[in-house]
Write a protein that binds this DNA or RNA. Sequence first.
DNA 1: GTGGTTCAATGGTCCAACCAATTTCTGCAT
DNA 2: ATGCAGAAATTGGTTGGACCATTGAACCAC
Lengths: 244, 244
Amino acid sequence: MTEFSLPPIQTTARDDAVLKALAGFVMQEALRPGQRLPTERILAERLKVSRNTVREALTRWEGLGLVERRQGSGTYLKAAVSPDMLHMPLTLAGGNDFTGLMRTLEIRRALEAEAAALCAIRAGKAEIAEIERKLDIMEEAFHSRAGMSAEEDWEFHQAVYRASGNPLFEQIIAAMHELFHRFWEHPLGVRDFGHASFPFHRTIYERIAAHDPDGARAEALKLIATVEDDLKRGAANLKLSDLK
Amino acid sequence: MTEFSLPPIQTTARDDAVLKALAGFVMQEALRPGQRLPTERILAERLKVSRNTVREALTRWEGLGLVERRQGSGTYLKAAVSPDMLHMPLTLAGGNDFTGLMRTLEIRRALEAEAAALCAIRAGKAEIAEIERKLDIMEEAFHSRAGMSAEEDWEFHQAVYRASGNPLFEQIIAAMHELFHRFWEHPLGVRDFGHASFPFHRTIYERIAAHDPDGARAEALKLIATVEDDLKRGAANLKLSDLK
DNA sequence: GTGGTTCAATGGTCCAACCAATTTCTGCAT
DNA sequence: ATGCAGAAATTGGTTGGACCATTGAACCAC
C-alpha cells in the first residue's frame, strides 16, 4: 500500500466522521470496486481513532453493501462511493410472501408508469432504437423458449428506465425487482407466470416511439395489472395446496 | 424491565446470530416502535457475547433504521421487527445539485400520487381522523408562524403514506425527503418555499376522506407541481446571484 | 412548587490482548 | 529450479475491562 494522507478526526460523532474521511480517501485514491482499502489497524492509527470505532463505521458500510470484509484478507470496496451518497435502507417485513410481493408491485406500478411516461417525452432516436432492439430480443426469446424470457423481459424494462433520463427509476425498481426475485425462485405454482404481460411490452414501446406519455403510462399500468393478476392466482393456488 | 429469556449464542457469525436472537426477543416480548430494548450490557451478558459484538449488531440495525440509540438513555425500537425481514439497502449517488433535486421530485411525484390514491381507497375512519389531525396542526402552524411549517407539513404527508397500507411508500419518500433537506437547510433564495403547496394539503385530505382515489391523485400531482415550480424559481435566482 | 445539584444508568470510545481465517514466506524433497 | 507442505505474518473477529459524555431521575435548598 502506497503513501496516503488521512488527517486525524477532531470532534464527536466519530464514526460518522470516519466514514466521511474514508469516503474522501476512496475518492482521492480513485479506488474502484474490488480494490482493497487500508487495514482497520492502519485506519485507526491514521485517523487517530480506536480500531473499535473504525470497525463500527465499516460495519455500517458493510450493512449498506458498500464494502465486503474477508477475514484474514482485508476489506474490499464493493460499490462506488462518493462523499455525498444518500442511503435508503428498505426493509420489507417478510412473513407473508403474498402481501410483501404485492407491496413491491404497488411501488413498481407507480414508478413504472411514470418512467414510461417520462420516457415517451424524453427518449431520443437512439434510445428508442435501443428499446426496440431489446424488445425484439425479448420477443424472439419468448417464442423460441415457450415464454421463458424473464431475463430479456427485464432488460427491456431497464432500457425504458434508462431512457427516462432519471437514473433513480432504474435503481429503485431494480431493488424492487431483486426483492421480487427472492421469492420467485420457486414460482408459486403458476407455470406461465408473466405470459399475460407479454403483448403489452410492444404496446408500451409503440406509445413511447409515438412520444405519447399518457398512452405509455396507460399501457404500463395494464402490464403491471396482469402481473398482479398472476400473483393473485398464484396465491390462490398456494392456499389450496396448503390444505394438504 | 421484567423477566425475559434469551438463550446464549453458540457458533460463529456472532453478530448475525445476535440480531436473530434479538429479533426473536422483540417478537416474544411484542415490543412496539418507541419502546426501549435491553441495555447493551444486559444483552451481552444474557447472550454470552461481548458487549462489542452486541454493539456491532446494533450498529447494523441502526444503519437499517430499525433502531435508534440515545446516549445516556437507551436503545429504542424505531420500526417493526420480525425474524424474517428482507433488507434492501439502496444508496444513491450525488443529488446535490438542481438536476439531482428534480430527479428526486420525479420519484416523489410518482409515489406521492399513488400513495394518495391508495390511501383514498384503504384509509379507515381512524386513519382519516389522524390525517385530519395532522392537517389541522399544520394549518395552525402555518398561520401562526407565517408559513414556516415544514415539520408539520412533513408529518401530514407521513400520515398519508402510513394510511396507504404500504410501508415502502414512507420508507422511499422519506429518503427522498432527506435528500431534499440537504438543500433546504440553506434555502435557495426562495423565502416562501412551499407556500404555494399549502392549499393542496386540504384538498388532498378532502379527496381521501371522500374515498376518491382519482381525485386524491390529481391533487397530489398539483401539490408536487407547485414544489417543482418553487424549485425552478430557486434555481433561476441562484443562477443570477452566482454571477456575482 | 421551582430550580439547581448529585448521582446512577446508558450509550460512545478506547486499549490491549487473543482467536480464526487467509495469505505469504520458507525450506526441504524431488 | 520446482513444487509442495508447514511455519510465520497479516487481517478481520471477539473478548474483557476501563473510562468518558449524555441523559434522566432522585434529591435538596429556596
